[in-house]
Design a protein around this nucleic acid. Structure first.
Lengths: 246, 246
DNA sequence: ATAAGTCTTTGATGTAGGTCAATATGACGC
DNA sequence: GCGTCATATTGACCTACATCAAAGACTTAT
């Protein structure tokens, strides 16, 4: 087997897990944030908890967008492909993130589990009905998409105009900020994705990402105790490097 | 004077132009699309028509986001800056487009008029109130933002993974598609922005944009009758080049 | 018409980061 | 513990695009 996962290998063939929204431990940072008990019950009634193993493709670019998901555990990579196989990561998702916002009739990107994942799945048609009934939910979704658009524009600036070292430092900082927001501490961050995933996120090659990280290690700005974890030793320096202040 | 504009040189000092939504000629392709007469009247009541001259900065990155706008005439460039002056265009707006979607409390980017422009201005606070009252409006906005996010992700793929020629061809095609949608014909497209604006949109320099365009001219794929206008002679070839099929 | 300023094009040269190739390191199954 | 496989690192070299510099081509003002 390709990974040590105990989960089934396709999203659709999974045993469905019953996990009502009321008990959800990530509710306060997700779509469900700030909904009334009543609205939460409605949302719960159309959702199904599912689990997918590491490496499983959850959605496929160009497939009909029949489901939306809320990530409740694990992490996910999102990417688009060119005909010849070149790949651009459009984002990484962690617990509390919403998957499937960007779509028309088809998904705009593919999503693959970086680790074993837990998801909350909504049939799109029923969610759209519910949006009409529950304005708070629609408003919440609007804020989430709006926010994602701001991040997408930051990423455009990064991809179009930053140097390799600025890109890598910006990436580490954004992970650190996220970790800070969720856990309170942001010095040690988890890197569930590989170097080539990072490269494809930043518009660089594996080799350049690797060289840049060694560079930062040599300067003492970061340490990499184990693959999959990274410690930031000098966040000021990292911030300066991220904006080209050096 | 820097331009031949008859309009005032700052957005705020302009004479306000009364242009009720009911008469608006671009309504069918904008925010106002598919609203009932009643809802349209409500929207109209909080909007002010304004005009800004070529070169005027309409909004400034990091300024408090007090107004949102609907573009009803002219064209606009959106951009973000790094501390050292490097610039990334995040988009170009044309009649029917909405300005100000991506913001938290502050604007996420600056906007400058490429030509004399006509805008429909909404105070943010009042628009947000109206959103609560008119679910159709919120739904429409959600669709627009969602759509923009899809485009932003296409742009990430372009910036991170495409070559210079692929970038330029993709850009011309997206303008052509837009023109097609709005006017029915997409062979001749208008280029109100300069070469360096295009460069900053595509993550290239002025010189590379210019060289790439000359290249396409020499191959007979495009012609540039006047600066500010461009004709596509071979759209199939352009499409292939845009995706690296050559 | 002419002069001044701006934007575009073209050419010559430089370099950041890509490509190709060879180890090194770590993860997992047995 | 040991072999296998995948991923990460490091080194040598190359190239697409940037940078620097100098003409052209438009625009607008007088």
């Amino acid at each position: 087997m390709r990974s040590g996962s105990h989960f089934a290998q396709t999203a659709s063939s999974n045993p469905l897990v019953n996990s009502p929204c009321e008990k959800c431990n990530i509710a306060e940072m997700s779509l469900c944030h700030a909904l009334s008990c009543d609205d939460l019950r409605k949302l719960s009634s159309i959702s199904t908890g599912i689990e997918v193993g590491k490496g499983v493709t959850i959605i496929n670019e160009m497939d009909s967008a029949d489901f939306l998901f809320n990530v409740t555990g694990g992490s996910i990579k999102l990417y688009k492909l060119l005909p010849d196989g070149r790949r651009q990561m459009t984002g990484f998702l962690f617990p509390g993130d919403f998957l499937g916002i960007a779509m028309n009739d088809c998904y705009a990107y593919s999503a693959e589990a970086l680790e074993d994942c837990r998801l909350c799945r909504f049939p799109r048609a029923r969610l759209e009905e519910l949006l009409k009934e529950v304005p708070d939910l629609e408003n919440r979704l609007l804020n989430m998409v709006s926010n994602e658009l701001v991040l997408a524009q930051d990423q455009m600036l990064l991809l179009g105009r930053k140097t390799a070292i600025e890109k890598v430092c910006s990436f580490l900082l954004s992970l650190a900020k996220r970790t800070q927001r969720k856990t309170g501490a942001g010095h040690v961050i988890s890197l569930p994705m590989g170097r080539s995933d990072i490269g494809d996120y930043l518009g660089l090659t594996t080799e350049t990402v690797s060289r840049t990280l060694t560079n930062l290690k040599k300067k003492g700005i970061i340490s990499i105790p184990t693959n999959g974890q990274l410690e930031i030793n000098d966040i000021e320096e990292l911030t300066d490097l991220a904006e080209g202040m050096d």
